[in-house]
């Protein structure tokens, strides 16, 4: 029973996200909206997530890699595309990743000197 409730909560919020997306015609994926709703649910009530939910979330996220294997295998249907577009793909991946990394780090370095976290409990 301890597993059932957290799984229900996650599916319920996913369903809420999908419903919200359909109702608002937002192009944001349903599970992402579900994630926002779940985060808002705890932040607005100033409550910590229940231990059972934390437990299931940690378990699910610990195996996150496995969950995108089926989608990733779809790449075998696109091998020809990789072969013809390897240059733009590799340059864009390297360039864009480094630019994103440096932009984020530099802004935080320049303006976020006072950023800190509470140490207790961590």
């Amino acid at each position: 029973m301890t597993m059932l409730k957290p799984i229900f909560i996650l599916l319920l919020f996913q369903l809420a996200g999908e419903t919200l997306r359909a109702a608002t015609h937002l192009k944001v994926p349903g599970p992402v909206l579900g994630m926002v709703l779940l985060a808002a649910w705890y932040i607005l009530r100033r409550r910590d997530p229940e231990p059972e939910l934390e437990h299931i979330a940690d378990g699910l996220l610990g195996w996150l890699g496995l969950l995108f294997v089926p989608a990733g295998v779809g790449i075998i249907a696109n091998l020809a595309l990789l072969r013809t577009a390897w240059l733009p793909i590799s340059v864009a991946l390297l360039g864009s990743t480094f630019i994103t990394l440096l932009t984020t780090a530099w802004i935080m370095h320049r303006f976020g000197h006072r950023a800190s976290i509470r140490h207790e409990g961590l």
Partner: peptide, 30 residues
């Protein structure tokens, strides 16, 4: 299971946000 796992990403995010004291706006800008 990707769907519920994506929803579950909210949990570590909420946990980490709670520990942040200052620097919220520079963080948002970055």
């Amino acid at each position: 299971m990707l769907g519920p796992a994506t929803v579950a990403l909210a949990i570590p995010m909420v946990r980490a946000l709670e520990h942040m004291r200052r620097g919220f706006w520079p963080m948002m800008a970055a």
